[in-house]
């Protein structure tokens, strides 16, 4: 699962107030690819993401993978340098969560991720 998809996620567990951004538990297996920067797509998607959630998960992952994952500006700059766009591209499209756990920010419920596929299904008593 890419971090862009992660940005759209929210936890629906009973008792959540906001439900996002979901945390990624330490020790998760990530894959970081390298794809040609698609400037237009990056600009389009930056309009669609929750920016603070994107920064927060990026900082979260940088605690373990500082060398692979670029740092993002704390707020979206008005003018974007090519290098910044490349960084956004990397974060949005190249970083994938392969195995590990997503964590509900409010309740701590863990959602397992296997082969890149998170299991977001809730049990009867969690709804």
């Amino acid at each position: 699962m890419r971090l862009l998809t992660h940005n759209f996620l929210q936890s629906n567990v009973k008792g959540t107030e906001k439900g996002y951004p979901l945390g990624i538990e330490r020790g998760a297996e990530l894959s970081v690819e390298s794809s040609p920067v698609n400037r237009n797509l990056v600009l389009k998607m930056l309009n669609k993401v929750d920016y603070s959630a994107l920064v927060s998960i990026t900082n979260n992952l940088r605690e373990e993978r500082q060398e692979d994952i670029p740092e993002l500006p704390p707020s979206l700059p008005e003018t974007l340098e090519e290098e910044t766009i490349a960084n956004y591209h990397k974060v949005l499209f190249d970083v994938q969560l392969v195995n590990g756990f997503l964590v509900c920010p409010d309740t701590g419920r863990k959602f397992p991720v296997k082969d890149g596929i998170p299991n977001m299904i809730l049990h009867e008593d969690e709804i």
Binding site: R2, N12, V37, L41, M120, I127
Partner: peptide, 24 residues
């Protein structure tokens, strides 16, 4: 090769309770 940013992600979910934020 030049459009490799396009992607499709998948997850297990219940369509009556989508784990997605509003208006995404």
């Amino acid at each position: 090769p030049s459009h490799s940013a396009r992607y499709a992600d998948q997850m297990a979910w219940d369509a009556t309770c989508l784990p997605l934020r509003d208006a995404t």
